[in-house]
């Protein structure tokens, strides 16, 4: 099982279970929920933070948070 932090630039994945206690609620409210799609748009210089498209919302989070969110890769169409 990989996490958002393992995604490569341009890769898409479906959000799986996440470590519920640790994840900020705000992230869930912005659409980061199990079953939604996430795409890694860009990684900042120095490899942190990450620029994501989650469920049509563009946002950026730090790697430490990204590590808490499990995903299932979507194989390239």
């Amino acid at each position: 099982m990989s996490t958002i932090a393992d995604l490569k630039k341009g890769q898409k994945a479906i959000i799986g279970e996440m470590n519920a206690q640790e994840i900020p609620l705000k992230l869930l409210e912005m659409g980061c929920l199990p079953g939604n799609q996430v795409e890694l748009i860009q990684i900042a210089p120095f490899r942190d933070p990450l620029y994501l498209n989650i469920n049509d919302t563009f946002l950026s989070i730090r790697k430490e948070t990204a590590k808490l969110i499990n995903v299932n890769l979507i194989e390239d169409e």
Binding site: P24, K26, L27, P49, T57, F58, L59, S60, R62, T65
Partner: peptide, 9 residues
């Protein structure tokens, strides 16, 4: 600490 920033259009 956590950090969430929306990247607007």
């Amino acid at each position: 600490t956590y950090f969430v920033v929306e990247m607007p259009n």
